[in-house]
């Protein structure tokens, strides 16, 4: 311990505002946060025996990713000009730049939403992708069964009957309940033949007497999976069966499709959605910051310089994450 005599200087520490230092430290924690996701993605992908890279399967649109990169870079530039504007006391310009950034952020989210929409419509969602033909068969049966709504109808009927029993025990009025039960019974009776068809299909699946067939509409199969469109003559395929069901009962099954087999697709979807999802959340947080700044209107002034700078730093970080996500998800 030194015995330094004489009077020390007044200010200790770094010559940057606390808020800026705090923001940089926060960004450090954010780096580690995304490291966990990106690192997990890298090691899981390397550790997985395979990975779906076919854009037709995964609906990864490289153009959308590239455009989004472009959009984010533009917004980075606009936000840096906003800071310049505040520093040069050109607040009108700064506000315009902030609005431009906000618009670009909306654009980013819009393109992101378009990509997500593609994945949702093709059921490329974690936990919903069959990784083998057998799974695809089971999934189809599950979806068909759910589409009939038989289980809910039966459950409802049972509950009503139980209520009836309870009410009869007390000796209350049961007329309205009985009419409800009759109606519900009709519903169940209506569904039952349809659901029986599904059950028949199911028994075929369990007996192994039905093949998947080619879900066709979307082209080739995932690599590594032997496609079974060579189904022998006379052998039934699930694709045909579902098509038939579509024709017979469009009111029930219109939304049911035979899902496409994507090997290792669930792991792919899991990592894809967690990385892009949390990035999108950060985009939204950044937009909230910009909305707060724009909301200041003409009150935006030099006292907000640190705020603008910190929002900018945060926004650049969001951009940085995307700069790495783009090659890792879209290109590699």
């Amino acid at each position: 311990m030194s015995h330094q005599h004489g009077h020390p200087p007044l200010k200790m520490g770094l010559a940057i505002p606390n808020a800026k230092l705090g923001m940089w430290l926060f960004l450090g924690t954010e780096i580690m946060f995304f490291t966990a996701f990106i690192g997990s993605y890298i090691v899981l992908r390397l550790g997985s025996p395979g990975w779906p890279t076919n854009a037709e399967d995964t609906h990864i649109v490289i153009y959308a990713g590239a455009i989004n990169t472009f959009v984010l870079i533009c917004s980075s530039v606009s936000v840096v000009y906003a800071l310049e504007g505040v520093r040069n006391k050109n607040f009108d310009f700064a506000r315009k730049m902030l609005i431009l950034t906000l618009v670009l952020a909306c654009g980013f989210l819009g393109i992101k939403a378009y990509e997500y929409y593609g994945k949702f419509t093709h059921d490329i969602l974690p936990g919903r992708i069959p990784e083998s033909n057998q799974q695809a068969l089971h999934f189809t049966i599950r979806d068909l069964k759910a589409a009939t709504g038989i289980e809910e109808a039966q459950y409802k009927l049972k509950t009503l009957q139980k209520q009836l029993g309870e009410r009869q025990a007390v000796g209350g009025n049961t007329e309205s309940l009985q009419s409800q039960i009759e109606e519900q019974q009709k519903v169940v009776d209506e569904i039952t033949p349809v659901s029986n068809k599904v059950d028949q299909l199911n028994s075929l699946v369990t007996a192994g007497k039905i093949k998947l067939g080619d879900p066709g509409a979307h082209g080739a199969h995932a690599e590594g999976e032997q496609p079974e469109h060579s189904a022998a003559e006379g052998e039934q395929t699930m694709v045909d069966a579902v098509a038939k069901l579509h024709e017979e009962h469009p009111e029930y099954f219109a939304s049911v499709h035979v899902p496409k087999v994507i090997r290792y697709g669930n792991l792919f979807a899991s990592t894809y959605f967690i990385m892009t999802g949390f990035h999108a959340l950060h985009v939204i947080v950044g937009m909230i910051l910009f909305v707060m700044l724009i909301g200041l209107g003409s009150k935006l002034g030099s006292q907000h310089e640190t705020f603008v700078e910190n929002s900018g730093l945060y926004w650049h970080f969001v951009d940085l994450v995307w700069i790495f996500l783009f090659p890792l998800i879209y290109i590699v």
Partner: peptide
Amino acid sequence: EGKWKYVILLPTAVLALAMPFALASDIAVH
């Protein structure tokens, strides 16, 4: 910026790079 940028960012960068590498030796290589 001042040299503080290295103090904050270099260890972070090292950690962020080292973690996937360390995990890779177990998760990616079986």
